[in-house]
């Protein structure tokens, strides 16, 4: 780490949420080593640089690393029970937890998914991926 930048940390989580509301995945990139983080982080996990730039993650496709079908959920999601959540690895490498939409019988680790934000929900709860029909 060469130059120590004074961090303006307050916008990282809010920018991510605002991004989802505009239909964008916002992450951050370390301009020192190139590592990309989703959700955005202020300090690079690898090289500890504070030279982080917010950027749009353009990768909208990925695969399901794991998932679960939630049968008992908190009050705010009672209307959609049972629902699926999973961890998606985007083709650009970042991993993120999201609602997963699609037939339960077609769920499997490794299945392809694509970004499908839910306009009915607010903030971070909009993040959703849809199983891609692989024929």
């Amino acid at each position: 780490m060469d130059e120590k930048k004074v961090l303006e940390l307050s916008r990282f989580t809010a920018t991510y949420t605002e991004g989802l509301e505009k239909g964008l995945l916002v992450g951050s990139q370390c301009t020192n080593c190139g590592a990309v983080y989703l959700p955005p982080r202020p300090i690079c996990l690898d090289c500890k640089s504070t030279n982080m730039q917010l950027l749009e993650i353009t990768s909208k496709n990925g695969k399901l690393l794991t998932y679960t079908i939630i049968h008992i959920g908190p009050p705010q999601f009672r209307d959609i029970l049972p629902y699926v959540v999973g961890i998606v690895e985007l083709d650009s490498g970042q991993r993120i937890t999201a609602f997963i939409e699609g037939e339960h019988s077609k769920l499997a680790i490794g299945k392809r998914v694509e970004l499908s934000l839910d306009p009915e929900r607010k903030g971070n709860s909009r993040l959703r991926f849809r199983l891609v029909d692989e024929g």
Partner: peptide, 9 residues
């Protein structure tokens, strides 16, 4: 922020 908000229990 990133788990409970997307329905993770």
């Amino acid at each position: 922020l990133y788990e409970a908000n997307v329905g993770v229990t």
